[in-house]
Amino acid sequence: MGIKPIAIACICLVSLFFISGCDMLPNSIPGFGGNDESSVGGVLSASIFAPSNNGKVLSDYPFKPIVKIKNAGQFEAEGQTCITGLDKDVFSVFTGCECKSFKFEKEGATSEFEPISLEFGSYTVKPQEGDANQQFSAITRYEYVTDVTADLCISNDIYEDCGADPDAGGAIDAKISRVSGGPISIEGVQETVSYTGGSDTVTLIFTINARKSATGRLIPESDLNAQCTPVSADETPKVQAAVREFPITTPIRCRDAEVSADSTATIICEAKDISLINAKGQAVFEKGYTVPITFSLRYFFETVASSKFVVS
């Protein structure tokens, strides 16, 4: 009975020893591990791992900046990270821009993506008189896709069966069954049904309300591999939408959308003249019939991370 408190104390001391030892892990190595952010909300994030922000870099030693990229979304993103901004007079060999490509691949259907570390350099740091403040930025440009699957209500009497209000333009909120993470997130899908050519054909209009939810900006597709060249000011970046799964043969056309100043985008897709009856004049869609439809929003994104450090 008397041993118990001593045993507990020993366990506590040993635990304390291990916990304090955590400080000795790579995070405390000068110039490493200060900026290792985790992905938030299922997006792709790129952060400068070395040198850490406000970290120290020794002159006359090889300098290897490391950018860590994490993909917490579902899409197998592919892109390029370039570093720029380093003073060429201090970091020999550095030409002003150095780029590395990356691609995320899943090993299994359910597995998560492994983080990718991109190592740049190495550059020799020229000796400095005293401490000198330096910095650089890592520009990551990549292609990404956000998928959204909604259940489409379609029937011979859309007003009665789907609850569409003709006075409100026949719009109903489609039930979203699955949405993948990404820098562009989905806020809702609306379905507008209107009869065209009597009561046998309808036109469906889908309005996808999306929002840029990650830090960064959309870029035009042509700038994906532009390295350190600034994004073209002449071309407006757009979100391209396509329908991936729709079990009806009627073609659906989507218009590309721009992200407005308030970070929102409205993507409109339209399926014209869907026949509600077959050749025999029988109703194709029964009451309560729901059709899953998957939209893929494809876009090109850019994020920038910067790090300030001291060369001594």
Binding site: T84, T95, G96
Partner: peptide
């Protein structure tokens, strides 16, 4: 021209 080269920016 070498000041900026192919970089987006540089700090001097």
């Amino acid at each position: 021209p070498e000041l900026l080269g192919s970089a987006q920016y540089t700090v001097k």
